[in-house]
Simulated assay, not measured.
Amino acid sequence: MALAPEPDQRGRILDAALRLMGSGGAHAMSMRRLAAECGLNVATLYHYFPSKADLLREVIAHQSYEDLLAQTPPVDPSLPPRERLAALLEWIWREMATQDDMWRVLLGESLHADPAALSSAAELSALFESALHRWMRDLFTGEVLVEAEVLARVLRGTIYGFFIENLPLPYGDRMRFLSKRAREVATVLLPA
């Protein structure tokens, strides 16, 4: 009699696949290596995911950012505007850094023009820009800012650019660098 699969087995497979894809890219990860990592046979993987492309789509879909983007960032609204913006940027970069493997997968597979990665990256960018717009509106009520929608679009590109540029650095070095960049961005966007 066959044993029933663990209820969380699918999630364990997706988490292991994300780690492996994040370290070497989806193209370099074999189903055999993933099976070994999970302590399963390859046939079991194909039971859950008929192809590597299906696995990649599910790895990306498994990550949900709606809850994070729906929350209000823990930024003190009584801070001066520049400090408030710098605190928001630092919080965003810390949250992004908790998902390094996903960023590597999305970037790598988007560069390989994988349709699932391109679609997921575009969807995530739209959700992120919408959240930025809302955060800017809520955190800077009453301050004279450029149009919040335009500012959100500019910030999105700036946030991605600095984050991706520093993704190879160790976490501590990256956060120190990004903290400096947060203050510089705030100074440029909110001149005295």
Rank of each mutant, 00 (worst) to 15 (best):
A4S: 14
E6M: 12
P7I: 05
D8L: 13
G11K: 09
G11E: 12
G11T: 07
R12Q: 14
R12N: 07
L14A: 06
A16D: 02
R19L: 11
R19Q: 10
G22F: 07
G22M: 08
S23N: 08
G25K: 11
G25C: 12
A26S: 06
H27Y: 04
M29K: 03
S30D: 09
R32H: 11
R32L: 12
L34Q: 09
A35S: 09
E37K: 13
C38V: 00
G39R: 10
G39Q: 11
G39A: 11
V42R: 15
V42K: 14
L45R: 01
Y46R: 03
Y48I: 04
Y48Q: 06
K52P: 01
K52N: 06
A53V: 08
A53S: 13
L56A: 01
L56V: 03
I60V: 06
A61L: 07
A61R: 09
Q63L: 13
S64G: 15
E66R: 15
D67Q: 14
L69G: 02
L69C: 06
Q71N: 08
Q71S: 09
P73H: 03
S78H: 11
P80G: 11
L85I: 03
A87P: 01
L88R: 01
L89Y: 00
W91L: 06
W91G: 03
W93I: 03
W93S: 01
E95T: 12
M96E: 12
T98S: 13
T98N: 13
D100R: 11
D101V: 01
M102W: 03
W103C: 09
V105N: 03
V105C: 07
L107S: 13
L107I: 15
G108I: 05
G108T: 07
G108W: 04
E109Y: 00
E109T: 01
L111R: 15
L111Y: 12
A113H: 15
A113S: 12
D114Y: 00
D114L: 00
A116T: 08
A117P: 00
L118H: 06
S119R: 08
E123M: 10
S125P: 05
S125C: 10
S125E: 12
S125R: 15
A126E: 14
L127Y: 05
L127K: 09
F128A: 07
L132H: 04
R134K: 12
W135Q: 04
M136P: 00
M136D: 02
R137A: 11
R137L: 10
R137P: 01
D138M: 07
L139P: 00
L139H: 00
F140R: 00
T141W: 08
E143G: 00
V144D: 14
L145A: 02
L145R: 01
E147Q: 13
L151F: 02
A152K: 04
R153L: 08
L155E: 03
L155M: 13
R156A: 14
R156D: 12
G157H: 04
I159D: 00
Y160W: 11
G161V: 11
F162H: 03
F162N: 01
I164K: 09
E165R: 15
P168E: 12
Y171C: 09
Y171G: 06
G172H: 05
R174T: 07
M175E: 05
F177T: 15
K180L: 14
K180F: 13
K180R: 15
A182S: 10
R183D: 08
R183C: 06
R183S: 10
V185R: 00
T187M: 11
T187Q: 14
V188I: 14
V188W: 08
P191H: 06
A192N: 11
